[in-house]
């Protein structure tokens, strides 16, 4: 009993210690957000903790508009991207993982190829397409590709998860007369909840943090996402507003953290559905 307690305590201790190392940088960021600007660079540790909220006040109104505007914009983009990825990637994944059709391997290979080319060489032709559609300065160039399953990462992720689900389950449903759509919607989707939640979380975070495409497509300050607004605060050729940058970085971190906190609970709950099989 005592050795067990000791073991548990050690385990917690190790987890906590590593956890501290993981979070130190974030703590430093929090502390920096309330420091005067020169102190950010001259004070190495976490102490003394500043108490200057001016960075938040200044940061909130930087780039001309209240920061809430950028938070809303980023949320809209992320929401569209999540819906897009969940629907389109799971459909494609079902086809790739479960259905037999000519060209399956070729298509799968092409799909993987599409994520192997750096964005920098495809952004210009892509910009031309969206510009001709009149979509520059709208959220469409950031959402529509997700609706069309261009994010092969998630298709592949879901394929792997579906392949981990015993085929006997859909086979049984087929014998009961279920069509492909019903198998997809009523058997597989519920069973791949961990994958869907993972997709939701990642899509949210990655869209939130994405910079390059948002920089290219969102030019009107009223359309700025948080990452574009944040980056406009740091300029290598003139004075950068590091204090406000840190303050607003903290602010923009809150939504992603909340999404992760809530989301990870559902990943864990996946066990309730698959555990009993």
């Amino acid at each position: 009993m005592t050795t067990d307690a000791l073991k548990t305590a050690t385990k917690h201790l190790v987890v906590i210690l590593i956890g501290l190392a993981m979070t130190y940088p974030l703590a430093w960021m929090l502390v920096s957000a309330v420091r005067d600007e020169p102190d950010i660079f001259t004070t190495p540790g976490l102490w003394p903790v500043g108490d200057d909220l001016a960075n938040f006040v200044e940061g909130w109104d930087s780039a001309g508009l209240p920061f809430s505007r950028y938070l809303v914009n980023s949320s809209l983009i992320a929401l569209g991207a999540i819906v897009g990825n969940l629907v389109s990637c799971s459909m494609a994944a079902y086809a790739f993982a479960r259905l037999r059709f000519r060209g399956r391997r070729v298509f799968f290979g092409i799909m993987l190829l599409t994520i192997m080319l750096p964005i920098h060489v495809v952004i210009v032709p892509q910009y031309v397409i969206f510009s001709q559609l009149g979509w520059v300065n709208t959220f469409w160039p950031l959402i529509v590709p997700k609706l069309l399953a261009t994010d092969a990462f998630f298709v592949f992720l879901m394929v792997q998860f579906i392949r981990g689900i015993p085929r006997e389950l859909d086979e049984a449903a087929r014998i009961d007369g279920a069509g492909f759509f019903r198998i997809y919607a009523q058997i597989l989707l519920p069973l791949m909840r961990p994958a869907l939640v993972t997709t939701t979380i990642f899509t949210f975070i990655w869209t939130w943090n994405d910079f390059f495409t948002q920089l290219i497509y969102l030019t009107d300050p009223a359309m700025f996402s948080t990452s574009v607004a944040l980056r406009s605060l740091v300029d290598s050729t003139s004075a950068s507003s590091w204090g406000p940058l840190f303050a607003m970085s903290v602010v923009s971190l809150v939504p992603v953290f909340v999404v992760f906190l809530v989301g990870q609970k559902y990943i864990v709950q996946g066990i309730a559905t698959t555990g009993g099989k």
Binding site: S62, A63, L233, V234, D235, S238, A239, S240, S241, P244
Partner: peptide
């Protein structure tokens, strides 16, 4: 281009 003072 520029930093925040320029933008403002």
């Amino acid at each position: 281009y520029g930093g925040d003072p320029v933008h403002e």
